[in-house]
Nucleic acid binder design. Structure first.
Lengths: 242, 242
DNA sequence: CGTAATCTTGACCAACGTCAATGTTCGTGG
DNA sequence: CCACGAACATTGACGTTGGTCAAGATTACG
């Protein structure tokens, strides 16, 4: 089991340094290092909020099941992000978490969270800061669904992910990995699979962006950002990692 | 100026009791009790995050300005809810807050927040809990915009507000105050004003809900909830109030 | 009583969803 | 190496939902 002390993720520049005391407490919370194949749920909507987890490698999504049998993808989860904390604090997970590619998760014991946060006020404050940043992203996604056209929504969605990949050093030049299928994009931006294909054709013909063979290409980030009304979040502060 | 110690809101059953020490610290953070007329902004998108505030009475909205001149309403703010904390922690307010009716706000000094939270870990934890609950609501709103029809979205939106009004004792029987205009509903659920009117006609003809003369009527909450896929949040814990 | 704001309706149009057929990619077994 | 099937992507035809525009109707308020 990969130990928190040896964790390569937490050395990345985008993440906050963790004091020795905090690190020990986080390590004590870790119960399992779970490797999951693509398509597997790690957390299921409705489950008791016993665990939460940090994505160590690979891609995942946070989604809800909708009454008519479809789903709404709430968020794409990238390495270093923690999911399921809400379910721990509320008692029940209100959404599922699924691996999109083969992925590794650090499984954390929810019972340890409250004492940990109370004994480490700095850490607790940075967790709050991270949620506040996530809240802003959620606000922007809501705005995209409420007020933008199909092509703009997709452009916005791609840019948000591209930006977050860049922070992790996972985007090279104009390209970034992008393992989502058309149906995943559709379920994230609130469109049908077929219409996503049509909007992607439009975006490609305008040379704004392209998704091909699991790779997202954005020839000119500024131009796509203007088209989609995307404003990157300021990076004034490093993010906590649990 | 209404003092925090004499605050009537915090006596409501839905809110958590505040210890004497916490109350003193919160009172020290309060810089102003501001009465605002309908339509006035209390926080403006782009502003430095110097202040945040708790709505004491009246209704407000949290919204963002969209490039094409329209707006997206992110949330309806009800008495006892705090807005702008994200702007304080991020440095800049990413959204505006506007009074929808004449409203009273407790204006709080953002500089005092971090020390307050660190000296009162229980309070900090309850703030985190409140945000986690808000996150769930945001997830559900996203799902409504992404996957539901016009009438369902409006039904969902109305029920969410009706439920929150109920917690505050502001809904009587089948009725609740509802000062939003058609255009406000439209900007909240991502539709045009005209289409909101059409969907409301449908909802009224099905006797699911009605908005008339500033009053929302829901003859049968269960039936509307089924129609709109609304599941009320469990009320296992009281909410913090700042 | 008059004016401004908001609501309502109908006509028309654009965006998006649905369905069905075809193409493409990729892994598997012969 | 090839044949086959499964999963996914793509396209076109067509239907539905929701947006836009413009003209009254209603309400609130001075």
């Amino acid at each position: 089991m990969t130990s928190c002390e040896a964790c390569k993720l937490r050395r990345k520049r985008m993440f906050r340094c963790t004091s020795a005391g905090e690190l020990a407490a986080i390590a004590a919370m870790k119960t399992e290092h779970r490797v999951v194949t693509a398509g597997r749920d790690v957390i299921r909507q409705g489950e008791r909020g016993r665990i939460f987890c940090t994505l160590y490698s690979g891609w995942a999504i946070r989604y809800v099941h909708v009454a008519d049998g479809t789903r709404q993808i709430l968020e794409v989860v990238l390495p270093g992000e923690t999911v399921g904390l809400a379910g721990v604090l509320r008692g029940t997970h209100a959404h599922s978490v699924q691996a999109l590619t083969e992925a590794e998760f650090c499984i954390l014991d929810g019972r340890h969270f409250v004492p940990l946060a109370q004994q480490h006020p700095d850490l607790a404050m940075d967790i709050l800061r991270a949620r506040v940043e996530d809240e802003r992203r959620a606000d922007m996604r809501l705005t995209a669904l409420g007020r933008m056209s199909a092509a703009e929504r997709i452009g916005y969605f791609a840019l948000e992910i591209y930006d977050r990949l860049g922070q992790r050093g996972m985007a090279t030049g104009t390209d970034a990995p992008f393992p989502l299928r058309r149906i995943d994009v559709a379920d994230a931006v609130g469109l049908s699979r077929v219409h996503v294909i049509r909007a992607l054709r439009e975006l490609r013909s305008e040379r704004l962006m392209q998704i091909e063979a699991g790779t997202l290409s954005i020839p000119d980030v500024g131009r796509l950002a203007e088209f989609a009304g995307f404003v990157p979040a300021p990076r004034n502060r490093k993010r906590v990692i649990l």
